[in-house]
Design a protein around this nucleic acid. Sequence first.
DNA 1: GGGCTTATTGGACATTTGCGCAATAGCGTC
DNA 2: GACGCTATTGCGCAAATGTCCAATAAGCCC
Lengths: 202, 202
Amino acid sequence: MARMTPDDRREAIIAATLAVIQRRGIAATTVRDVAAELGASSGLIHHYMTSMDELIAEAFERAAGADLLATRALVEQGQNPLEQLRFFFDSYTRSDGNSGMQLWLDAWAEAARRPELRQISQRLNEAWQQLICGIIEGGMRTGEMNCTDPAAAAWRILSLLDGLHLQEVAHGDSVTSSQVSTWSRRGAEIELGLVQGTLTSY
Amino acid sequence: MARMTPDDRREAIIAATLAVIQRRGIAATTVRDVAAELGASSGLIHHYMTSMDELIAEAFERAAGADLLATRALVEQGQNPLEQLRFFFDSYTRSDGNSGMQLWLDAWAEAARRPELRQISQRLNEAWQQLICGIIEGGMRTGEMNCTDPAAAAWRILSLLDGLHLQEVAHGDSVTSSQVSTWSRRGAEIELGLVQGTLTSY
DNA sequence: GGGCTTATTGGACATTTGCGCAATAGCGTC
DNA sequence: GACGCTATTGCGCAAATGTCCAATAAGCCC
């Protein structure tokens, strides 16, 4: 393997870890898998990461954080709160293989037992909730949305999405990808007093 | 170890497996752990279970199935759909240590990797959804509830509950146990066109 | 009490895992 | 072009895991 700058190599290792995690899940990811993905030796990973846990936590934060940033960037392009919320759902319910959601399932299950992972996952989930909360508060100011408790509504919208996604990823055919999209948008419409179809963008 | 009836021994193994799972989680449960918990040899477990997957699946089914039966029994004591739904929430959001919810988190995460487990978890989740769906349909007949798509509404109510519970179990202090109860009931009220407070029983 | 069935044992086995270490080789410096 | 630093290798080690199996012993029927 070509010799690289420590910074570059570290990035490459995290990227490779991410690829493996999305394919096999956190629990089944091994150092050797990452090395193979990277096209390098297993010893190299340990030259940069002190432990497997550090590797996992770092990769998870990178992946989940990137999703959040991407969605937030898309939302900010919305011209008004309604469009922002539509963009939010577009980004969150895009069907790109759901690999990201299995990652979250693993993280939530492991959170109780891995303090580092719990901290990251909690911080990111709260950021997601605040993203939604901000949209709702904007919608209340413009009068487009109606809601008595924006914070609670935001947690409900997020939890509903996660709960539906969970069914899709874990069980596959009891809740389909398009049902996740339709039902969660409909749930938000009901929650915020919107006319049916307002959040459907296609 | 004292010799036991196959039926009794099987029960004992499942009980021991459950104890280990609740302590260590599904992913970290090993045959040797179960044997130690049981106070018997590891070979004995395989004399009753053909594989580790079967063992895990059976234990999960026992625990999660019992919860479903208990809730269903409570619901059936409700005199009308509204009371039934209240009883449902009482049973589902009772705070008995959340051990049950961590079990579900493990199951959902492991479902992708353990076919037998996925089958059971899917079947149980669908049973939960049908329990809610039945209540809603009853409520529509009596005119107490208003809803255009009972099946979708039931999935939403269940997913919202699971999503909120998930936050509570995984992260602890971003969503509290009482918020799960309050917010999920409020979500159902909104979903079914009920007056605020209808589902609050205390 | 003897014999038969089978519950139970305890370890062997192959595989996989995270991790460490001595050896090697790539790149900059003089 | 030689030298030194260190990125990189590739193997080895110990521990853990699921599974299997021959040996043992506990209970039951005659």
